[in-house]
Design a protein around this nucleic acid. Structure first.
Lengths: 307, 307
DNA sequence: GCTTTCTGATTAGATAACATGATCGAACAG
DNA sequence: CTGTTCGATCATGTTATCTAATCAGAAAGC
């Protein structure tokens, strides 16, 4: 009989295209993985991977097997989390959070969870929206915190709170802007904007509300965190959008930075918690949503006291 | 992580409604099964079965889990056989055959398989149509030989050969019938007919072609094999329908028995090989069908030489 | 051409997962 | 009360699976 372990290893192998790399991903040594793959090929009576120099290739059968293994593993993971969490917010919970939210929301959320004395073993994974969505779909994550609007790929989304975009820059730049008039997002020159790397929803959403497109000229500094970005704009390297949720932390980290709230209608994103539709009993989900909303609101209140 | 082993044990437990019985079914001792179920309940953090005196009951969660386990196990088994057999008729093949065909067709079929020098480890399971169909569906069997017309539950059916129903009885009874005229199925009195137990498709199909219904008066002798039935009719206990496929063997076993072929249109059944639709590469299936057809035809030819 | 490096296979020994056999206690029938 | 049935538990044995060390072949560097 094939085993789920073998399937797990095989999926990792197909993804990594390397025995050693796959072994690392599943936290075993390379011989252990090689052996399981071999065993799998024996039970199926067919070669699944062609071992090429520096690469592997799935055989025809291997491709079929891979697809099915994905399905079987997803079903198993879904079953597990569904049942495990059906009693409420207890047991192990694997939560994904996007990078522009995680460092600000999680500390407060975890404090709340702890003080609620919940018997919860929470694992957090930070990744970009697309990856989080697919991980929730295939059961690698139980839920994820992402920012809407964004394609949720058929997942159920529970809005948590609204996060406004502020304009951040060096104090002189911001003063120059306010001197003229209340700036509107659409007035901004795209060339002066510093944005996060490709793939971060924040950049795309921010540009979207301004009716702008990502220009080639944008200085691509490889900024992959808001903290880096804030450090840069504080030094006068340009302007950036800063979500309210990050304001308190980043103001503390970069005291030279100034921020400006846009006039209504303010550009914003909706922070939401997503889960699979199939998740049967959703008490834990609602409990978690409440906790995260409270944590978020706290940050919003603090932010509004500063801008 | 849940394991397929745990799921297998759990499914057996749900079916048997007893730990000891389930353990026997999966060929382990009772403590081994108890332990795996316990482990499963631990991983899921929920009780799955209520241990009642002399019985068990699935909890709400248990029912959900059972359903999913069935799906996951079926997918795994299907994947295995699909890949294993995709190269042709090799490896292990688990075939189901109905009881009114198995003892006659299998000896010849197995001889052919052996002489074809196929590297085939064939397991045979004898059961009634309904059970075979569901076993093929959930992957416990790779294919099954059944008799049509019968509900195939969405399975693909490959007709192998046509098997006519003959009328069998003691020599005196048969002579009495032929003296009058060529008997037609619809002329027969249901009370004089001996049939197999409930559940055997042969009895139902035979009655169906005669336009008869199973009557209460039919002597219910608990005959569950054609061999028994032939022995009885040979002793003058009544008449029965005998499929051509069984003729040679049963004539040899009961020399006192006489048979009579009905005039055209002869009542008949179609012997067919069924498989899941999802079975991807079907070379092995066709090879097997050819072998079985040849074996069947051989029996038909031999039968026609005698009636 | 010769080494170095990267990759997966192989082997032997350790470890964890799983099974067994014996035994216990609760529930029930006689 | 006694014997029986059934599942839990415990000590122990077996098998599956892992790791660490090593090997062999192909590509890349010198």
């Amino acid at each position: 009989m094939l085993t789920l372990r073998q399937m797990t290893y095989f999926v990792a192998l197909a993804e990594q295209r390397s025995f050693s790399a796959a072994a690392e991903v599943v936290h075993v040594t390379q011989p252990a993985l090689s052996q399981q793959i071999k065993e799998m090929e024996t039970t199926l009576g067919t070669r699944l991977v062609e071992r090429l120099p520096r690469d592997i290739r799935l055989t025809r059968a291997g491709q079929v097997v891979l697809e099915r293994c994905h399905e079987i593993l997803a079903m198993t993971r879904n079953l597990e989390t569904e049942i495990r969490l059906s009693k409420g917010l207890t047991g192990r919970l694997t939560l994904g959070v996007i990078p522009t939210i995680a460092p600000y929301l999680l500390p407060r959320a975890l404090t709340r969870i702890k003080s609620a004395a919940l018997d919860l073993d929470m694992r957090v994974r930070e990744a970009q929206t697309a990856e989080l969505v697919s991980s929730v779909q295939n059961g690698k994550l139980d839920a994820a915190v992402i920012a809407l609007p964004h394609d949720t790929g058929g997942l159920m989304a529970q809005p948590l709170f609204t996060d406004h975009f502020l304009l951040a820059g060096s104090q002189s730049r911001i003063e120059a802007l306010t001197a003229q008039s209340a700036p509107r997002p659409t007035d901004l020159s795209p060339d002066a904007l510093l944005l996060l790397d490709e793939g971060h929803c924040l950049a795309d959403q921010a540009l979207d509300v301004c009716g702008l497109k990502r220009t080639r000229q944008t200085v691509d500094l490889g900024a992959s965190s808001l903290a880096t970005l804030c450090g840069l704009v504080a030094q006068g390297f340009g302007l950036t959008f800063l979500p309210e949720i990050a304001l308190c932390s980043e103001m503390a980290a970069s005291p030279d930075m100034a921020v400006l709230r846009f006039p209504e209608p303010q550009p914003e994103r909706t922070v939401a918690l997503v889960r699979r539709q199939s998740t049967e009993v959703k008490t834990w989900f609602n409990e978690l949503a409440v906790l995260l909303t409270e944590a978020g609101e706290e940050l919003m209140v603090a932010a509004r006291a500063r801008a």
